[in-house]
Amino acid sequence: MITAASDTAIAVESMDNPDIARRAFRTMQLSRAVEDKLASLYRAGMIKGGVFLGKGQEALSTASSIFLRKGDIFGPCIRDQAGRLAFGDTVLDTLRTYFGSAQGPMRGRDGNIHRGRPRDGYYAMISHLGSMVAMVGGALYARRQRGETGVVGVTSIGDGGTSTGAFHEGVNFAAVEKLPLVVVVANNQYAYSTPNNRQFACADLLDRAAGYGIAGHKTDGTDPRACLETLNRAVQAARDGHGPQMVVATLLRLVGHGEHDDAGYVDAGLRKANVGRDCLDVGARQLLEDGLATTGELAAWASEAQAEVEAALDIAQREKGPDPESEDWHALSTERLVDGYFDAEEE
């Protein structure tokens, strides 16, 4: 169910509205709360399969989708828990998908970060990096063909994902078609364990924007204020008909690739450097500096986020998984075209 991205987002989409910074920070807090919970559930052996978190990327991720409206399209990537929530995904659906609940959007058929509600413009990523770029582009193409204007699509990827052929083909196609697509690249320094210097040889990933003939924006991914300003500009430019926009943010993944990974390969110097800052710490300081929140409010919001996670967990944990007996085991929507041989074989 998409709620946050719809009406509320329309009301506060301008950076002139101080509420955007508060709302963004609360989304970041909520994302961190649910991810901390997921990490402990994983350690407790309560989640089957992997857990893939976006710790350290909440500012960029939130900014990626917070300026989207109802009718826009969001194709998130692995570390976009915060952006998912900002677009209207819920803590409950997050936990449901990790648990494989039949009530969740993926009904136990897919899990963890592979969730979405495509009818609401919230696309469910596949694992093959770069594949969502052309898909979101195609959605925008269809909208334009239908005569809709002012629609924006945002999709995100990491530094490693930019090396895929699919990423190149997708961005190039979007550029040729001048689609209102924002591609957010989170350069978190490592693709799983592979550092930037084994991933690409250009001086800056932003250089690629010029190669595609599209606008490029650089931002500090550890700085929530900068992320909001940059993404506001990029989304607005796309909405105003200036074609694809590439945002490259520099930051550090503060967790492993997944919770199975201790990230021992991360350079200790990076952790101590500016790039290794925790964007939640930076965001809290900024809100206090700007007089947009008090320490009491920040603490209260954190408690509320915690309570929301616990309430959702209480529900999700009690929900049933899918029933293999009642599954139809059909991969087509057209019943008459299902190869019934395999059904009959089991009987």
Partner: peptide, 17 residues
């Protein structure tokens, strides 16, 4: 463009819409 991956990917997105 000569981009079979993007050709199919764009069609999928368009179909969803």
């Amino acid at each position: 463009p000569i981009s079979e991956d993007a050709i199919v990917g764009m069609a999928i997105g368009a179909a969803v819409e």
